[in-house]
Amino acid sequence: MSSLDDLMKLEGADAAFTFNPSGELTAHQLAADSKLQPESLDLLAHTFVANIAIATLQARGWESATGQGGFYPVKGFTLIGLEYSTVGNGSCGVVLHNESADFEAAYAALTP
């Protein structure tokens, strides 16, 4: 898993953060011009925990119902906003500008 410094080097990174299994924010870094607050990152962290749990349920159900593997274990979740997206996996997340976001690089950086 990359450090927060490494995650901030991703193209278009606005924030990088870590969280515990409950979704509480444990550490973060913000870009100099970021408008995000730690409280917002804490909420984003909770959305990762919730969505990865639901995606895991879906991956398990899908694989057992269809026999098609390849979704479990879930390796990350992304929430897409108008100008920004946030990519999370494990205990880390990063906020990226959509214009320059490289999601594959973000997922690779977030792989433990």
Partner: peptide, 9 residues
């Protein structure tokens, strides 16, 4: 939505 998925699976 979650209940629909549970029933479906």
């Amino acid at each position: 939505g979650n209940t629909d998925q549970f029933s479906m699976f």
